[in-house]
């Protein structure tokens, strides 16, 4: 007996509907660690905004795979990413994960923590405070931006406070710097053994930088001076490609100075926010992914301070 060829499909479709089986496979991050220095592996994110296509995989995550175990720097944007990262690490080494360091509290850097809940997670005290205060709101926002990739993601706070100084791990001398320019609590890590600088989001490369928690452009520029004075031969920015020179640092500083000048001049002219958001973007930044988008955001974050500095007292409170 011949069957109509469409029938089995219709039957399957009906069954899927009845039992609510997933029609699409679960999204997969496909993380591919790449060795960039002795023991040092990079999982490079895309220079995009958060989206339902990329699941928030826009961040650079690094791990040191040593004989003494694995140290992970940042855990990514979601539980699913953290799990994929852990699986990717296991493909590179049999050594167990011993420790996690978080560079700062932004959701794309810390929401993979659940996958590392069995090892100590360390961060600056200020980072832990910011995560406790704002973590769930930021996670909610991530859920809105990237959707299903976030399923089951919860904020896991660090359980260890880092102090600036030297941390020895698996034959590496890691200099920990407590900086503040990007969020008020930013950890930069210089591996003095390999000469690799893990700059976190203090350095962006070929992607417009973000300013939602910066204490101010001056503070950020001061941090970049400090990082520039250190001896390193390879820099891993928080977002964007790694480099063997100080190009990413100079690009970040150049962009910050341009923002500062743009806001200062606009406030002196009496410009309101929308006019500032539409400021011309110099050609050297215009091709950076998300240049206009981040200028709009940074205007929201920072311009009120520049206005405030420009305003006079016209009338005291009565």
């Amino acid at each position: 007996m011949r069957q109509h060829p469409a029938a089995p499909i219709a039957v399957w479709a009906a069954l899927l509907l009845m039992f609510g089986l997933p029609v699409q496979a679960a999204p997969d991050y496909r993380l591919e660690p790449r060795q960039i220095a002795p023991d040092t592996w990079l999982v490079e994110g895309r220079t995009e905004n958060f989206s339902k296509d990329n699941g928030g995989d826009i961040v650079n995550v690094v791990f040191l795979a040593t004989d003494a175990g694995v140290l992970v720097i940042d855990t990514g944007p979601s539980r699913r990413y953290g799990e994929a990262l852990r699986a990717a690490i296991a493909r590179v080494t049999d050594a167990p994960v011993r420790r996690v360091l978080l560079t700062h509290h932004h959701p794309d850097h810390v929401l993979g923590n659940q996958a590392f809940a069995d090892v100590p997670i360390a961060a600056l005290a200020g980072t832990a405070r910011l995560m406790a205060d704002e973590g769930d709101a930021m996670a909610e926002n991530m859920y809105r931006l990237v959707g299903d990739w976030m399923r089951g993601t919860e904020v896991v706070l660090p359980d260890e406070a880092l102090e600036p100084g030297v941390l020895a791990f698996g034959g590496h001398r890691l200099r920990l710097l407590a900086l503040q320019g990007h969020t008020g609590a930013d950890l930069a890590i210089l591996d003095e053994t390999t000469g690799v600088l893990f700059a976190g989001d203090l350095i962006f490369h070929d992607r417009a930088l973000t300013t939602p928690h910066t204490p101010g452009i001056d503070a950020w520029l001061a941090d970049l001076d400090r990082l520039g004075a250190l001896a390193w031969s390879l820099v891993v920015p928080g977002h964007g490609p790694i480099a063997r020179d100080d190009g990413p640092l100079r690009q970040t500083a150049d962009y910050l100075r341009w923002l500062d000048r743009t806001f200062t001049e606009a406030a002196a002219r009496g410009a309101d926010m929308n006019e500032v958001m539409q400021s011309p973007i110099p050609t050297r930044f215009a091709d950076l992914p998300l240049a206009r988008y981040e200028l709009i955001r940074s205007t929201n974050h920072l311009y009120p301070r520049y206005e405030g500095a420009q305003f006079r007292l016209l009338a005291p409170a009565p």
């Binding site: 002196a268 002219r269 009496g270 309101d272 206005e307 405030g308 420009q310 305003f311 006079r312 007292l313 016209l314 009338a315 005291p316 409170a317 009565p318």
Partner: peptide, 25 residues
């Protein structure tokens, strides 16, 4: 409450015209 009604702002020339900006507590 002590700042209620405090007005910050400025006046900014725009050619013949003037931008007037205020921020009221």
């Amino acid at each position: 409450e002590d700042r209620l009604g405090q007005v910050l702002g400025g006046r900014y020339p725009r050619g013949e015209q003037s931008r007037l900006r205020v921020q009221v507590s």
